[in-house]
């Protein structure tokens, strides 16, 4: 994510065909040169460190990862299957579990869908136009990253709660937002908003507006330009953003916990149900749900790696155009 969120400086913006992942380190020249420079830097770093130190650093990194990432993951699966595979699937077939899975999928679909649209629009506005307050807009997009999820949830309680700003109106019109799907979706949209926009902005800034300008001067309409030129150019970055957005949407706990109301079989998402079942001494069921979330994380990881490779290969706009029928 770190290189993805790095903003493009005017110098690097000139190299329209290099990939985003290179931006942080690449000199303002062609792609081959940047790759060579990077590998040169890397191998020099390695050569300059004596063997034992290199070994210690690698060992430290691996043992740290083992203790803090691999072991907990293994524990989740071990606990989930501790009473056998039948108990595992029985736990997942419980109405409450199914309802939580259903709700999680629904909320993820809503928030990913909306953030996809909003994210593209926001990234488009920031990357392709100059307007006053642009820096402020960029900061705003980042806001959900820096706000604690609990606060994000409480904000919606203050807005939509019965004692909140719009509470009286909502109650009078029988609109239930808090403690129902809309509230959960709102909170999730809020915390996952930056992902799509953030993965697109550097990419779109780097690509500049020349191709769109060319398309329009050749007579393409605005929509045609978007679907034929812009979208193919950004599709891998977009997928990458959607993937991260989805992972966070399904895994969000804090913000959702505040607005959920914890109605069993109705407003509990998977992460919430994991905690509830754990507190009810139903460890197998709890870890069975947790294992689903862990699997989601693993799948996300694999797809993310593939996407990063795609981005790294520097899908040049010309290739993309050739793919078009």
């Amino acid at each position: 994510m770190s290189t993805q969120t790095t903003f493009v400086t005017p110098a690097t913006r000139l190299q329209a065909y290099s990939s985003t992942a290179d931006l942080a380190i690449s000199p303002p020249s062609g792609r081959d040169a940047s790759t060579r420079a990077r590998s040169a830097v890397a191998s020099k770093d390695l050569r300059s460190e004596p063997g034992p130190i290199r070994f210690i650093i690698i060992a430290l990194a691996i043992s740290f990862l083992t203790i803090f990432v691999v072991l907990p993951l293994l524990v989740v699966f071990a606990s989930a299957f501790s009473k056998g595979i039948t108990a595992y699937f029985a736990a997942l077939a419980e109405p409450e579990a199914l309802s939580a899975i259903r709700l999680t999928l629904l909320v993820a679909a809503i928030s990913v869908g909306l953030n996809l649209v909003f994210g593209v629009i926001a990234a488009w506005a920031i990357a392709k136009f100059e307007f006053p307050g642009k820096t402020f807009l960029i900061t705003l997009i980042d806001l959900p990253f820096s706000v604690s999820p609990v606060i994000s949830g409480l904000v919606f309680v203050l807005l939509f709660g019965a004692q909140g700003y719009w509470g009286t109106w909502l109650q009078a019109h029988n609109v239930q937002i808090l403690f129902a799907v809309p509230g959960i979706a709102l909170a999730t949209i809020f915390v996952t908003f930056p992902f799509v926009a953030r993965s697109l902005i550097p990419l779109m800034q780097e690509q500049g507006t020349q191709e769109e300008e060319a398309a329009i001067s050749l007579g393409a309409s605005g929509l045609q330009t978007f679907f034929r030129v812009t979208l193919p150019n950004i599709k891998w970055g977009l997928l990458y953003g959607v993937l991260l957005c989805n992972a966070r949407a399904m895994g969000e706990f804090g913000a959702v916990s505040v607005v959920s109301g914890h109605i069993r079989g109705e407003t509990n998402t998977m992460p919430l149900l994991v905690e509830i079942l754990y507190n009810e001494y139903q460890f197998v069921a709890s870890f069975a749900i947790a294992s689903l979330l862990a699997m989601l994380a693993l799948i996300t990881l694999v797809v993310k790696t593939v996407l990063e490779q795609r981005l790294d290969e520097g899908q040049t706009p010309r290739d993309e155009l050739r793919d078009e029928p």
């Binding site: 019965a162 109605i263 109705e266």
Partner: peptide, 18 residues
Amino acid sequence: KQSHGGSGSQARSVIDGL
């Protein structure tokens, strides 16, 4: 349907419109 939690925070949720 059931909802469980700390008694004080549950009361708060009902006040907020649960």
